[in-house]
Amino acid sequence: KLETFPLDVLVNTAAEDLPRGVDPSRKENHLSDEDFKAVFGMTRSAFANLPLWKQQNLKKEKGLF
Rank of each mutant, 00 (worst) to 15 (best):
K1E: 13
K1R: 13
K1Y: 11
K1L: 12
K1C: 15
K1Q: 14
L2Y: 15
L2C: 14
L2K: 11
L2R: 12
L2G: 09
L2P: 14
E3N: 09
E3D: 11
E3V: 12
T4K: 10
T4L: 12
T4R: 09
T4I: 15
F5R: 03
F5M: 06
F5A: 03
P6L: 03
P6A: 06
P6H: 03
P6V: 02
L7D: 02
L7C: 07
L7Q: 05
L7A: 06
D8Y: 08
D8M: 11
D8E: 14
D8V: 09
D8S: 12
V9S: 08
V9L: 13
L10F: 04
L10A: 02
L10D: 01
V11R: 12
V11S: 07
V11I: 14
V11E: 05
V11G: 04
N12C: 14
N12W: 05
T13P: 07
T13N: 08
T13R: 13
T13F: 08
A14S: 12
A14L: 11
A14V: 09
A14P: 13
A14C: 14
A15I: 15
A15K: 12
A15P: 15
E16D: 10
E16F: 01
E16V: 11
E16S: 11
E16N: 11
E16M: 07
D17R: 10
D17G: 08
D17M: 12
D17K: 11
D17I: 06
D17Q: 11
L18S: 05
L18M: 06
L18Y: 06
L18Q: 03
P19R: 04
P19T: 03
P19F: 02
R20D: 15
R20T: 14
R20C: 15
R20M: 15
R20P: 15
R20G: 10
R20A: 15
R20V: 15
R20H: 14
R20F: 14
G21C: 10
G21R: 05
V22S: 03
V22T: 03
V22L: 06
V22R: 02
V22M: 05
D23A: 04
D23T: 05
D23E: 06
D23L: 05
P24A: 10
P24R: 07
P24E: 06
P24N: 05
S25L: 15
R26D: 04
R26C: 14
R26P: 03
R26I: 05
K27N: 04
K27H: 04
K27V: 15
K27P: 07
K27F: 05
K27T: 09
E28T: 04
N29S: 11
N29L: 15
H30N: 08
L31G: 01
L31P: 01
L31W: 02
S32A: 07
S32E: 04
S32M: 03
D33H: 06
D33P: 07
D33V: 05
D33T: 05
E34P: 08
E34K: 10
E34C: 07
D35G: 04
D35T: 06
D35E: 09
F36V: 00
F36I: 01
F36M: 01
K37L: 15
K37Y: 15
K37H: 14
A38N: 13
A38K: 11
A38R: 11
A38M: 14
A38S: 12
A38T: 13
V39P: 00
V39T: 10
V39F: 06
F40L: 08
F40D: 00
F40N: 00
F40C: 01
F40W: 01
G41K: 08
G41H: 10
M42Y: 05
M42W: 01
T43V: 08
T43S: 13
T43A: 09
T43W: 02
T43C: 08
T43H: 08
R44M: 05
R44D: 01
S45L: 12
S45V: 13
S45Y: 12
A46I: 09
F47D: 00
F47H: 00
F47I: 00
F47S: 00
F47M: 01
F47R: 00
A48V: 09
A48M: 13
A48K: 12
N49P: 01
N49V: 11
N49T: 14
N49F: 10
N49D: 15
N49E: 14
L50R: 00
L50T: 01
L50N: 00
L50E: 06
P51M: 01
P51W: 01
L52A: 10
L52R: 10
L52Q: 10
L52V: 13
L52G: 09
W53L: 10
W53S: 10
W53C: 13
W53G: 08
K54N: 10
K54C: 14
K54F: 12
K54I: 12
K54P: 00
Q55L: 01
Q55G: 00
Q56P: 00
Q56R: 11
Q56S: 10
Q56H: 11
N57Q: 15
N57K: 14
N57Y: 13
N57S: 14
N57I: 12
N57W: 12
L58R: 02
L58N: 01
L58W: 04
K59F: 05
K59R: 09
K59I: 07
K60Q: 11
K60T: 08
K60S: 09
K60V: 13
K60A: 11
K60E: 13
E61L: 11
E61F: 06
K62S: 07
K62L: 10
K62Q: 08
K62R: 08
G63K: 06
G63H: 05
L64Y: 07
L64I: 07
L64K: 02
L64W: 08
L64M: 08
L64V: 03
F65Y: 13
F65C: 15
F65S: 15
F65V: 13
